[in-house]
Design a binder for these strands. Structure first.
Lengths: 127, 127
DNA sequence: CGGGATCCCCAATGATACTG
DNA sequence: CAGTATCATTGGGGATCCCG
């Protein structure tokens, strides 16, 4: 048999799925949702929503579907009425929590060292 | 004076700069540029561009300015003609490379475990 | 309760052309 | 060489309504 030429991804190869995967896990709400699920274990949809300040219903559903599609989050439906849907991390999702936690920690640690006037956002607001 | 109540950031606080900072370092080209500079030390603008397949001049300039504004990248101009501009990581930028490298490694390691049919991209491409 | 469907807006991204 | 300016595109993301 031939060994796969790309057993491991290459971020610098435009045709490699790694880039899209990295984009998806870099989504605006992913870091928060993963952390919440990593700490709480299993949560209902509305609990995840309450734990994620500022997220809209649409973005939460969309993000959870994306994470489920990537096998990072497991979805469990209880056939009650009204239905209760629970979300939890898969082992793969838990493995993502580690590097993501490092990035969150870095951002929380260094947010005071960034120059508030040097950011594009504040610069663009200058008339 | 009052001591700052938020010596460390809180990602879950919508008014905390941590979220914007995390958004900026999650930019589409940041991971690649940081890695390139971390490995090469100091590079010219055109070298960074060549090392970042797919990036446009606009996005490269914009991303580099953003990183410079956040104090992650240092810009050095040599007053020759034509001018030569060099970019390198600051110590802060090097400290970001560590968590970012972990995330890159995770993406490259697990790109094969994601279900290609479960992703929004591939689902949308289905006619 | 947990979404799906729809409409709409603006910010991010990109292609192209121009300049110090 | 190292950008900036301009224009065109897109799709992220919020608001709203509806359904099982």
């Amino acid at each position: 048999m031939v060994t796969a030429p790309d057993r491991r991804g290459d971020l610098f190869d435009p045709s490699c799925p790694t880039r899209q995967l990295l984009d998806r896990i870099s989504g605006k709400w992913v870091a928060m949702i993963i952390k919440t699920l990593a700490e709480s274990g299993e949560l209902r949809w509305s609990e995840v929503k309450r734990a994620t300040p500022g997220v809209s219903a649409k973005m939460l559903a969309q993000t959870l579907q994306s994470l489920e599609g990537d096998g990072l989050v497991a979805r469990r439906v209880e056939p009650t009425v009204p239905p209760a849907v629970h979300y939890s991390l898969t082992p793969l999702g838990e493995s993502l929590d580690e590097p993501l936690a490092a990035l969150r920690a870095w951002a929380e640690d260094h947010m005071h060292e960034i120059d508030p006037l040097g950011t594009p956002a504040s610069a663009a607001r200058r008339p």
